[in-house]
Nucleic acid binder design. Sequence first.
DNA 1: GCTCTGACGATTT
DNA 2: GAAATCGCCAGAG
Length: 106
Amino acid sequence: MAIKRKSEPFDELVYDLTRGVPSGLVTTYGAVARAIGRPGAARAVGRVLNKNPDLARVPCHRVVRSDGKVGGYVGGIRRKIRLLRGEGVPVNQNRISDFKSYLWQP
DNA sequence: GCTCTGACGATTT
DNA sequence: GAAATCGCCAGAG
């Protein structure tokens, strides 16, 4: 079975990408969408993360918008910001300072 | 198979 | 810089 691709649901790919984000860095929905081979599917990526079955398994709080805004989070945006700050990412009013410097690219 | 929704993106005003 | 508008993709009803 050397051939194996696209057999995995969109969700699995998104989770795997998000799982690869190191602590202290963040990525964007668009970057994830592009990494899985579906550029422009940023919306779909966000939808998948919202269905995230296990927050401890997938650090979805490290995924932010392309503008540097944190976006949203299950349980409250406030919670996401708190987590990011705890990892060393400076957040200002739902926005990340120099977020491009903390941006992690696959 | 169509319609609606959504943790988005980029552009324009 | 913020708000409004259009466009794109995937899942659920």
